[in-house]
């Protein structure tokens, strides 16, 4: 392959001898081999053994589970007289999941926005001769960035287990557990989005007499709004998934119902819950696209 390149170069009077092509291809080969080796070594160390998945019982269960995907349940597989209808339970559980996710985001967004504001320098006024103000700004920046890093470093499920262990199984504990890492993640992404947008309008507004806060809010935020919204909707989807997972540790969201059905091997019921969850996320995605399109941002 390298010889072909060199021949092409000579045909077009380009002197490839000046370029380290041998070196580049050798480096790429080394990187690929290193990645492959690391993957193989890690899989040995953690005992990865796909063959175990192929034992008779596992295959049977897998087959039943996948087969149930084509015939989701419209009623309980083992109906108990006096229980509310299955589809009502499904709808109630998805609404509970949505409520949980919306509530978690309602707490996370303002905290995340505030943290993002303090962890970006985009709005800083000129502090040429104001040492005290400069120190205050830098101090606030360091504190907010440190909190963001800490909050993000622990997964919401870990926070959930810690809070539920401390406060018992309650929606409040779960909401707090989700809000901590979510506000940190939102803050980080919000501040990065703000930093990457042009400051031309902001600088112009300052030059025509606007204060630093007005010029920041009206010069940068309108530009960043479609991206900020896009990411917020993505986080709402994540909140929906987190709410589902929290069902596995006792919070009565759709995940709780999936666990109950799954423990009884009622896979048709499980698929009904999964399809409804998928539908909710698809509707959320459609809603998010239409809002972003109206705001003039990318619909992706």
């Amino acid at each position: 392959m390298i010889e072909k390149f060199l021949m092409m170069g000579n045909a077009n009077n380009i002197n490839f001898n000046k370029f380290p092509i041998e070196q580049i291809f050798s480096r790429r080969r080394k990187v690929l081999i290193t990645i492959a080796s690391v993957a193989i070594v890690c899989s040995f160390l953690i005992g990865l053994n796909p063959v175990r998945l192929l034992n008779g019982n596992n295959l049977k269960l897998a087959g039943e589970f996948i087969g149930a995907a084509f015939t989701p349940a419209l009623d309980y597989e083992n109906p108990v007289p006096g229980t509310e209808p299955f589809l009502i339970t499904v709808i109630e559980s998805v609404l509970m999941t949505l409520r949980f996710a919306l509530l978690a985001m309602s707490v996370s967004i303002p905290i995340g926005a505030l943290l993002a504001f303090f962890s970006t320098t985009a709005w800083w006024p000129k502090v040429r001769n104001k040492r005290g103000l400069k120190l205050l700004l830098i101090g606030t920046l360091i504190i907010s960035k440190s909190w963001i890093t800490f909050a993000r470093s622990i997964h919401e499920l870990m926070w959930g287990i810690l809070f539920i262990t401390a406060m018992g199984i309650s929606t409040t504990a779960a909401i707090i557990a989700v809000s901590i890492p979510f506000s940190g993640i939102l803050a980080k992404i919000y501040s990065e989005i703000i930093e990457e947008h042009s400051r031309e309008a902001q600088e112009l507004f300052q030059s025509i007499g606007a204060g630093f806060f007005s010029s920041f809010c009206l010069g940068i935020i309108p530009q960043a709004l479609p991206d900020l919204l896009s990411y917020t909707f993505y986080r709402l989807e994540c909140a929906l998934r987190t709410a589902t997972v929290f069902g596995f540790i006792g919070i009565e969201t759709i995940g709780y119902r999936i666990k109950l059905s799954s423990d009884e091997f009622h896979y048709h019921e499980v698929w009904t819950y999964l399809y409804v969850l998928f539908g909710s996320i698809a509707m959320l995605e459609w809603w998010s696209r239409s809002i972003r399109k109206r705001l003039g941002g990318s619909a992706n």
């Binding site: 031309e200 309008a201 112009l204 309108p222 530009q223 705001l295 003039g296 941002g297």
Partner: peptide, 13 residues
């Protein structure tokens, strides 16, 4: 003092 900078500094959105 109004300014029309080279890059216009309009907010496209």
């Amino acid at each position: 003092i109004a300014t029309i900078p080279q890059n216009l500094a309009l907010v496209d959105s």
